[in-house]
Design a protein around this nucleic acid. Structure first.
Lengths: 173, 173
DNA sequence: GTTCCGCTACTCGGATAATTTGTGTCCGAGTCGCGGGGG
DNA sequence: CCCCCGCGACTCGGACACAAATTATCCGAGTAGCGGAAC
């Protein structure tokens, strides 16, 4: 019951990427510098996000990362699942039928009630995460946080984002 | 985002202990045998449950484990927290203020919005777990599962439980 | 026959290794931008 | 002066070590029950 440290970095990076304009990209090294993390390691997590379709990666000197879809359609659940894996946290090993008393297989057709209860709780967790859109996070940050912090972050984004010269039509991708 | 394997064993053991009568106890070795687990390792988790006040342990030849309070007052959350630890799964490392731009500390008085969202989701998770009482699990098992499985489990409990000769008054403990 | 004592066996409890997962780092493939040369 | 080509540098991507946590195991402390001896 412990989330990896990379989840926090991934969410912060996604929130920062929500501030770049249109098709512009931001290098992973810049975000690593912004949060004081190892660039090589952050790439690993950003890569996971790209593999899950949350981010898009552009190679080359003007390359970097960008959101694959509008921030309104990205939830915290997407990010957490991309980094931590899609499988449920609780895995039922069916230890109830591992004992020395080997009952017939027909006695275990019903699913394990413990597994059902744990999965139900996890479903509540994921639902709460799915209700938190990335745009909400950014909006709350903009309204609640200190104006200096927000301005500094915006300046950092403007300073490091790389506009894309060629813009392939978005609907074609 | 992955729960330890011992959580499943702990819940199954607690459900089994719910079937023992009154002050009687059940050795950890018997439960390990029932689920095909390492006795020495299961003891570790049962010990964690005892340290958290979910179980009581009795040493000696007629010793073993027993529920510390009625099954109606034990929730899955108690068990999960005892085994996995009480700290939240998501730990905010405050990486937002780790970058090279050192703003004044007064700019970070407001809590991190990302942390708040993650903690809110985890609160939903724990609430769902807290609503699942151990007695509910047992009742669902008794009514839904195959009668043969339930009978086998009851027989196992009766076979391995060790009644306590001397019964210290419950209110005194 | 009854009582006391010592012993054995069984229990939990904590300290100690092995393995898997997560963390951190490194080097290679690919691609765009820039500079030089030619037309 | 304009266009084409080659080079360099910067990016992501995957393969490779290191550390920590989880998993698994062993041995020791403690206690109830039982058998034997003394009274």
């Amino acid at each position: 019951m412990k989330l990896g440290e990379g989840v926090e970095a991934a969410i912060h990076c996604a929130a920062m990427l929500a501030g770049v304009d249109g098709a512009a990209t931001m290098p992973g090294a810049a975000m690593a510098e912004a949060f004081g993390l190892s660039p090589s390691y952050l790439l690993k997590h950003l890569n996971q996000l790209a593999a899950s379709g949350v981010l898009e990666s552009v190679p080359g000197p003007a390359g970097g990362y960008r959101l694959a879809r509008p921030a309104e359609r990205i939830t915290l659940l997407d990010i957490v699942l991309a980094v931590e894996g899609r499988e449920p946290a609780f895995r039922c090993g069916e230890i109830r039928q591992r004992g020395p008393v080997r009952l017939d297989a027909s006695a275990y057709v019903k699913p394990c009630g413990i597994n059902a209860a744990m999965l139900k709780a996890e479903r509540a967790y994921r639902t709460a995460l799915a209700e938190a859109r990335l745009s909400d996070i950014v909006a709350a940050y903009q309204s609640d946080a200190d104006p200096r912090s927000f301005a500094a972050n915006c300046a950092f984004v403007v300073r490091h984002q790389r506009p894309q010269k060629v813009q392939p039509s978005k609907s074609e991708r």
